[in-house]
Design a protein around this nucleic acid. Sequence first.
DNA 1: CCAAATTAAATTTTATACAATTTAATTGTA
DNA 2: TACAATTAAATTGTATAAAATTTAATTTGG
Lengths: 148, 148
Amino acid sequence: MDDEDLLKLDNQICFAVYACAREITKLYHPLLQPLGLTYTQYIALLALWEKDGVTVKELGRRLYLDSGTLTPLLKKLETSGYLTRTRDPEDERNVRIELTPQGRSLKRQACAIPEKLFVQAGVTAEEAANVHGQMMELLRRIHRQDEA
Amino acid sequence: MDDEDLLKLDNQICFAVYACAREITKLYHPLLQPLGLTYTQYIALLALWEKDGVTVKELGRRLYLDSGTLTPLLKKLETSGYLTRTRDPEDERNVRIELTPQGRSLKRQACAIPEKLFVQAGVTAEEAANVHGQMMELLRRIHRQDEA
DNA sequence: CCAAATTAAATTTTATACAATTTAATTGTA
DNA sequence: TACAATTAAATTGTATAAAATTTAATTTGG
C-alpha cells in the first residue's frame, strides 16, 4: 500500500472513531437536557455513582481527563448542588469529591437513559459488547504508548 | 438486566469510544506539531486533499462538522496560506474552499504520519480494518437516528 | 533537618464542538 | 411579481479538552 492510500486508510480509521464519539454525544443531548446535564458531566457522574469519595486525580485517571477539564466541570456540578469538593486534611494537595443526596438521587432519573439510547441507536447487546471490547483494547494500547 | 447494570454497560461502551477518540487525538499531537496543525485541521486537510473546491456545507457533511466549527478553523487555515475561501458567484450563499499550492504541498509531509502512527500504536492491519468497519457501521446507524 | 524534587489542583491559553440565532441569498408560489 | 419559506454561512454563547504554567503541599536525599 502506498502513502496515498495509507493517508486515506488512516483517515478512515481514526476519523471513524473520532466522528463516532461526536455522534454519540449528540445522541445523548436530548436525553440529558431534561436533567440539565452535559455529556461530560453525565460521564463524570456515572463514575462517581460507582465510586465517590475519590480525588480529582483518581477520577481523572478513570475518565482519561486532567484537572484542566475536571476542575471547572466539578465546580459547576458543585454549584448545582450535586457534589462537594473538599481538601483532604491528611494531604492538602488532594481534593476529594463526594456526592450529595441530590447527586445520588439523580442516578434514579439517569437509569432511564441507557435503554432509550440503545433502542434509539438500534444497537444489539452483541454489537455493544463487541464494540466495547475492541475500543477498550485499542484504548489501553494507545494509552500505554501515549504515556511512554 | 436491571437498570443498574444497563447504566454500567452504557457507561462502558459510550465512554470507551469517547475516551478512545481523545487518546487518538493526543497520539497525533507530537506528529502534527512540527507541521503546525491541530488534529481537526489535519482531518479537514485530509478531506480536502482527496477533493477540494467544495462548499463549507459539503465539507461539513463529510466531516460531520457544522459551520460553527468549520468557519473559524477554515479561516485559520486561510490565514496560514493553505487554502482560499471564495463566495460562489453562481450562488453567493455558498463559500468554496480551494487548496493553495502550499496547502497541496503539505500533503507530502503528512504522508509520513500514518505509518508512524500505526507503528506507535502497535495496530495491525487486521485490527485496523476491524475497528474501522465497526465504527463506520455504528457511525452510519447513529447518524441516521440523529437526523430523524 | 532542609533544600530540591515531586505531586495535585488550579489557572491560562488555544482550539474545538455544538446549539441557537442571525444575516443574506435564493427559491417557490400565490 | 411580491413575499414567505428555505438555505448556507457566520455569529454568539456555553462547555469541553489539552498543553503549559503556576501554586501550594509533601516527600526525599544529603
